[in-house]
């Protein structure tokens, strides 16, 4: 007898899976919609979260440490200190602010008139230091090291602000992760249930196949395909839903970003999110089917 190849066995099972999906199109549609929502919703949240984090983490909002030199040191010495800190491992950037420049800037403000009456420039040379790492403890450590430096008068940093931004970003990430995990679990439960119903509906057929010598692998194959296809379908619909939501939300968020001078709102490419959703749908669908089958076979051993 001619044994069929692996692929022929799979296509036969795939055909049966498609038959099962097509047998109750309304049920398939409803399940697909539920699963697609479970995929699209956390993805949209993650997209918004990533965009907002990007805003806060972007240029102009990074923590800055302002360092004032002592009045007693001269320009050469100040520049030497600036150069030394530029090469420091914990520092991203250093900008030297000469006292003349600081004064010029001050003169443009409301305080200008009062300052103009002073005989000498009262301001010291200064530098702004941008740390490489923004975590509060890293910033605080850098601040301490700067304060210990000879020739430096005062070190100022808005640590509360740094902590606020970091807290927000961390909370946002955690909420997105929790939602994703929760919805993934929901999706697993839903495919588990869908396959379970199919198995119960096919109980007589399965017992006949068993009597005729079918292995668990043969019996389970169409249902594995079913779970995978159902997940894939949900992934595609979910990706489409997500794409639509993102397309709908991008203009207002872009506008908001522009108003705050933050550049566009573009956390990650839309196609990457779509691919991730399709993949997640297929994997979760296959996993749900596998769990359902294993439980079914264990119970009917």
């Amino acid at each position: 007898m001619v044994k069929r190849g692996w692929w022929e066995g799979q296509t036969e099972a795939l055909g049966r899976a498609l038959t099962l999906l097509g047998r109750a199109p309304l049920v398939t549609a409803v399940v697909t919609l539920v699963l697609a929502t479970a995929l699209a919703l956390p993805a949209t949240m993650a997209w918004i979260g990533a965009g907002v984090t990007q805003w806060f983490g972007g240029q102009g909002t990074e923590p800055q440490i302002t360092v004032f030199f002592q009045q007693t040191i001269d320009r050469e010495e100040a520049l030497a200190i600036v150069q030394r800190w530029r090469e420091d491992e914990a520092v991203a950037r250093v900008v030297f602010v000469p006292r003349e420049a600081a004064l010029a800037r001050l003169l443009q403000t409301d305080l200008g008139e009062a300052i103009e009456t002073l005989p000498d420039n009262p301001l010291p040379d200064a530098m702004t230091v941008v740390p490489r790492r923004f975590a509060p403890q890293d910033v605080a450590q850098l601040q301490q090291r700067l304060a210990a430096e000879a020739g430096i008068e005062t070190v100022q940093v808005d640590t509360a602000w740094v902590e606020r931004v970091h807290g927000l970003a961390r909370a946002g990430t955690m909420v997105a992760a929790a939602l994703a995990a929760w919805f993934a679990l929901g999706m697993l439960a839903q495919t588990y249930l869908a396959i379970r119903l199919q198995l119960v509906a096919a109980a007589q057929e399965i017992s006949v196949l068993r009597a005729l010598g079918a292995t668990d692998g043969y019996i389970g194959r169409p249902f594995r395909w079913f779970g995978w296809l159902q997940g894939l379908l949900a992934g595609c619909v979910g990706a489409a839903l997500w794409g639509g939501l993102v397309a709908w939300l991008t203009p207002p968020f872009d506008e908001l970003a522009r108003l705050y001078g933050l550049g566009g709102f573009f956390p990650f490419p839309v196609w990457a999110g779509g691919v991730a959703l399709v993949a997640a749908g297929a994997v979760l669908g296959a996993l749900g089917a596998e769990i359902s089958l294993r439980q079914f076979f264990r119970a009917s051993a």
């Binding site: 069929r4 057929e205 009597a211 043969y218």
Partner: peptide
């Protein structure tokens, strides 16, 4: 215990023991 499956055609029913044993469909 092994009745004919009502949702599959006569030919598909008769083919079952062969397909289960992995004989090529043709």
């Amino acid at each position: 215990d092994a009745p004919l499956l009502p949702q599959r055609t006569v030919a598909e029913n008769v083919a079952l023991p062969l397909l289960i044993a992995g004989v090529s469909r043709r």
